[in-house]
């Protein structure tokens, strides 16, 4: 048994150079010398560091789309006081500056926001039954936040909008009806979903809870990458 093992071992030892000789005969004429190729192989095995991925460039994006929310506004008429359930519809726009992290998964988001629309409502109490329609509102604000890329073409965001709003009430002359919130401020939390539809075009969906207005605003926007 030991003899057989020795024979097999000898066959193995001598078969290596024989095989190398055979393959050397087959090597093309223009191939590098064995020494050079061995050196190349050694270099390859050291696995040179992959060139660092260039950092993703910062981006400026604009978005625009409709928004809707409802809120309760305090109203008074003379000495009577009450609440008015109002509904605001309008168009919101933003310029958003995005700063990607080094691993490109996270983006810092800073946007300047603006918008306009109309508010309407009717007093809920018999004491103040007055109603409003088509009253212009203007809104401006700033929204910092974070966006996380969930796939190459989709992302979710958690943002914190700071908003200031003016309502340009135009009441009938002589009316003692006085709705509140001519100008008001709110801060909120936004959950956003962003989907890339083409190279520069995105679908942006968001829901925002404005704490000081106690209102939940929905927004769907078209977002465009400016650079």
């Amino acid at each position: 048994m030991r003899l057989i093992q020795k024979i097999l071992l000898l066959c193995f030892i001598f078969s290596g150079p024989a095989f190398a000789q055979k393959t050397a005969k087959r090597r093309p004429a223009n191939a590098a010398a064995p020494a050079a190729s061995a050196s190349a192989a050694a270099t390859a095995t050291t696995k040179p560091a992959r060139p660092a991925r260039p950092p993703a460039p910062n981006q400026l994006q604009m978005r625009i789309g409709p928004s809707i929310w409802q809120e309760n506004i305090k109203v008074s008429n003379g000495t009577s006081k009450g609440n008015m359930e109002t509904q605001s519809q309008g168009l919101l726009g933003s310029f958003a500056y995005l700063i990607p992290s080094s691993n490109r998964a996270w983006l810092q988001h800073y946007s300047a926001d603006f918008g306009f629309g109309a508010i309407k409502g009717k007093g809920r109490s018999a004491a103040v039954p007055d109603e409003l329609k088509g009253q212009l509102w203007l809104v401006g604000g700033f929204t910092p936040g974070l966006i996380y890329r969930t796939s190459p073409i989709s992302a979710v965001g958690l943002l914190m909008p700071f908003s200031y709003r003016m309502i340009k009430y135009e009441l009938k002359g002589g009316s003692s009806f006085n709705p509140d919130n001519d100008s008001s401020f709110s801060v909120g939390a936004t959950g956003a979903y962003i989907n890339q539809m083409s190279k520069n075009n995105y679908l942006y969906l968001s829901v925002t809870y404005h704490v000081l207005w106690a209102a939940t605003a929905w927004n769907i926007s078209w977002q465009y990458k400016l650079f």
Binding site: I68, Q70, K120, K122, E131, L132
Partner: peptide
Amino acid sequence: NTRQLNTSANVTK
């Protein structure tokens, strides 16, 4: 979240 949009001043909660 459900809402109604209408042309009157009345806003349904």
